[in-house]
Computed example of a mutant assay.
Amino acid sequence: MSKTIKFLIVVALFVGFASCSDDDDPTPLVEVKSESIVNLHAPVEGGSQQGAPTFSGEFTKFDFATGKTTTSETEWDIAFRGLSIIVNGGTSAGTTDEPIRTKEAAVYIASGTIASVTEANLSMFKQDSETGYAIPEGSGNGWYTYAGDPTHLINPTPGKILVVKTRTGNYAKMEILSYYKDAPAEPDAFTDESPYFTFNYVYQPNDGVTTF
């Protein structure tokens, strides 16, 4: 066998081996996205009458993948209105102007810091239902604490991290920092505008990956 033929055989074997190795390489992971959202406006209309809630108005919808609000009826993960936060999964709780849930988003509240919550706990997720939202409402029950007299402040409760399963089955975690416009260090409920949400979030774009 000539040296030229032997050389060509060796080259062919090397190329074939390299091709097989490339095919076996796993798809590289996309970098986890960490972002801050400032002044997400979530206005609410109405109030209460004789103890019956009469809140109304459109929810402000948010999509973690794009990091933006959206008016889409289907392509949203969570939505805000006043103190209420809902997910695009489950069913309506029956309040006025709630969007229809069209996907399987879910959420739970973890204790810790946004840095210390490193993995989504799949057994903890809940969806909205006729009996209430997955993120409980009321002071001290969910993401906020109401200070009452004399300040009447709405403060995000320290150590409460919202962990979200998005409508596409990916995962995100978020920490709400402020309920007032421009996130003042010392808000005044009588002069600072609300509701304007400021929050940090981390989004895991890789399918099936539960860590952050």
Rank of each mutant, 00 (worst) to 15 (best):
M1A: 08
S2M: 03
T4D: 13
L8W: 09
I9R: 04
A12L: 14
G16E: 04
F17R: 01
D22T: 07
D22H: 07
D23P: 00
P28L: 01
K33S: 14
S36A: 11
I37T: 06
A42C: 08
P43S: 08
P43E: 02
S48K: 10
A52Y: 13
A52S: 12
P53W: 06
T54K: 14
F55K: 03
S56D: 04
E58L: 13
F59G: 10
D63C: 08
F64C: 00
A65S: 14
K68Y: 07
T69L: 06
T70D: 13
T71M: 08
W76E: 06
I78P: 01
L83I: 12
L83R: 09
N88M: 10
N88F: 14
N88K: 12
S92R: 12
S92H: 05
A93E: 11
T96C: 05
E98S: 07
P99L: 08
K103R: 15
G112T: 00
I114Q: 00
A115F: 03
T118E: 11
T118L: 03
F125C: 02
K126N: 11
Q127G: 04
E130K: 14
E130W: 07
T131M: 06
A134F: 01
I135F: 02
P136C: 09
G138A: 08
Y144P: 04
Y144F: 15
Y144C: 05
D149Q: 14
T151C: 01
H152N: 14
L153R: 05
L153E: 10
L153I: 05
I154R: 01
N155C: 02
T157V: 03
P158C: 02
I161C: 01
L162A: 15
R167M: 07
R167D: 00
R167C: 04
G169A: 06
E175H: 03
D182V: 08
D182R: 07
A183K: 11
T191V: 15
T191E: 12
D192N: 15
F197E: 04
T198H: 07
F199R: 00
N200M: 09
N200S: 11
P205N: 09
V209R: 05
T211N: 04
T211P: 01
